[in-house]
């Protein structure tokens, strides 16, 4: 059986940690562990999302005004960037599963570049712009139109949610850099679990953005403004 040979090979190279019986058990445990961590993350973002829902329900118009200050163009572009990075990440995992080292490194580098592009647009283009516009609550908030306090509340949630998301992106980029270095050292030969786990994390961060984009940028529709 090819499987048993692999198992022996992985154990021989010290890739199966001593607490595990075999590489299958290790693979399943690592996968389950990552999913449990993602469940935690859902509730971590969940506290913010619940607060956003409450206030959106109560101050719908103020939140719509706040939402119209955001750039749909850059938000949409960033959504596309992240979806592309998810594709390259999925392909990277596939390359790791097939032990194709060159493909793995290429796709990981692509993913990293897209991640950095996302952060660049987020901070360099959007946050910078909104800060200059006087839309940064607690720091530089100069909007004095209707519903000003609640518009500020919306802008806070915008910064909090995108900031928390960006923090996860930064962590994700760090993980990608580590993976690239390890892949260059040929550490994932016939041992793709770390790449797959990192992929799960990266896709999750993508999913968070899939929800943040409509919730923040498209809130209440863009018609008639």
């Amino acid at each position: 059986m090819a499987n048993e040979q692999v198992t022996v090979a992985e154990e021989h190279r010290g890739l199966v940690k001593e607490q595990f019986d075999d590489s299958l058990q290790q693979y399943q445990a690592s996968n389950l562990g990552m999913w449990l961590f993602l469940a935690t993350e859902v509730l971590f973002f969940g506290g913010l999302l619940a607060s956003l829902t409450i206030y959106r329900y109560q101050y719908f118009h103020a939140f719509a005004i706040g939402s119209h200050f955001l750039s749909v163009f850059w938000g949409g572009t960033n959504t596309a960037v992240l979806i592309c990075s998810s594709l390259t990440m999925a392909l990277a995992v596939r390359a790791a599963q097939l032990s194709k080292r060159k493909d793995l490194i290429v796709f990981l580098v692509f993913t990293l570049c897209l991640g950095i592009l996302f952060l660049f647009i987020k901070f360099g283009e959007e946050w910078h712009h909104e800060y200059l516009e006087g839309l940064a609550p607690g720091v530089n908030f100069t909007y004095h139109g209707p519903h000003a306090p609640h518009v500020e509340l919306f802008m806070f949630f915008y910064f909090a949610l995108t900031g928390l998301h960006a923090l996860h992106m930064i962590v994700g980029c760090g993980i990608l850099i580590t993976l690239i270095i390890l892949a260059a050292r040929n550490r994932f030969k016939e041992h793709f679990t770390p790449v797959e786990i990192a992929g799960l994390y990266w896709h999750f961060v993508d999913i968070v953005w899939i929800f943040l984009y409509p919730l923040l940028y498209l809130l209440g529709g863009r018609f008639g403004h």
Binding site: A2, N3, V6, L24, Y27, Q28, R94, L98, S99
Partner: peptide, 11 residues
């Protein structure tokens, strides 16, 4: 017949 495909489905 990939060596590590044993317990992961490859799309």
């Amino acid at each position: 017949p990939s060596a590590t495909a044993g317990f992961a489905h490859i799309e």
